[in-house]
Amino acid sequence: MLHLLTLRYLAATTEVEPHVAGHVHFLERYHRQGIFLISGPTVPAEEGGVIVARGVDRAHMEDIAAEDPFVRAGVAAYQVVTIAPGRMHPMVSDLLAEPLVRAGSERGDLPR
């Protein structure tokens, strides 16, 4: 599965700023695990950000999104859109072909 997560700020920048370090740590954790492929701010950045993720089912992706310090603090919310890729450029097909979570494995078994 491939997921597009759109982050939208619900509060003023001054309320978001204290949680930026925790949000960056959250992003780095899931990039290291190979779940987050791309992340970055929208343009303009004051609107929020976007994450492209892979390798977990939608329920797990929603659990991951709920861990974001921005969400926990109530200053932002995610919309999760799950995509079943039908066509893709050959440059990304190998990357998206291998799931991170094998059948029967537990969520805690993901690489760290």
Rank of each mutant, 00 (worst) to 15 (best):
L27S: 04
L96W: 07
E46M: 12
L27Q: 08
A76T: 09
G40D: 09
D57N: 14
M1R: 01
G22M: 12
F36E: 00
V16I: 15
A66T: 05
V50G: 01
G108Y: 06
D109W: 04
R87M: 08
Y9Q: 01
R32I: 09
R87A: 08
R32A: 13
A76Q: 09
R87E: 05
L100I: 07
H19I: 08
L4A: 05
G74K: 09
G55I: 06
M88T: 13
P44W: 11
M91L: 11
R107T: 02
P41Q: 12
G108V: 08
Q79H: 11
V92Q: 03
G104S: 02
T42V: 10
P99E: 06
R32Q: 13
A84S: 10
V92S: 09
H25W: 05
R32L: 14
P41E: 11
E106P: 00
R54E: 02
I64W: 06
I64L: 14
H19G: 07
F26N: 05
A65V: 05
H3C: 03
R72F: 08
M91H: 11
M91C: 08
D109P: 01
R8T: 15
T14N: 10
T6Q: 12
E98A: 11
G34V: 08
D94R: 14
Y30D: 03
I38R: 08
F70L: 11
P18R: 09
A77M: 06
